[in-house]
């Protein structure tokens, strides 16, 4: 019984997070300006991180947690670098 509940909840959650990622990707394509695209990328990687955690619950493996942590760190650094580029026109001054 509890396996069915968890399976359904994980599938529903994955569908919703997948939809959120699709919407974020749509905003990345649409723009209209560079800062909108960057914030779309930010939303996309945060949702990807959440999706990985739900994969972890669905399969019962802990390895997905580490992948989520790595995505979070790389995403943070890339967003900061892109924002810095927007502000100054170069990343390393």
């Amino acid at each position: 019984m509890s396996a069915i509940i968890i399976f359904t909840a994980v599938s529903l959650a994955q569908l919703m997070i997948g939809a959120a990622m699709a919407i974020a990707a749509l905003r990345m394509f649409r723009g209209p300006r560079a800062q909108d695209r960057i914030i779309g990328l930010d939303t996309l990687y945060v949702s990807a991180m959440l999706l990985l955690v739900t994969f972890g619950i669905g399969t019962g493996r802990v390895i997905y947690f580490e992948a989520a942590l790595v995505i979070g760190m790389l995403g943070f650094v890339s967003t900061v670098a892109l924002a810095k580029f927007l502000m100054r026109g170069e990343v390393i001054e």
Binding site: A19, A24, L50
Partner: peptide, 17 residues
């Protein structure tokens, strides 16, 4: 908790659009 988290993420994305 899974459904609360996932639906808030989705609502955030919809608002984002």
């Amino acid at each position: 908790f899974l459904l609360v988290g996932a639906s808030l993420t989705l609502i955030g994305a919809i608002g984002f659009l």
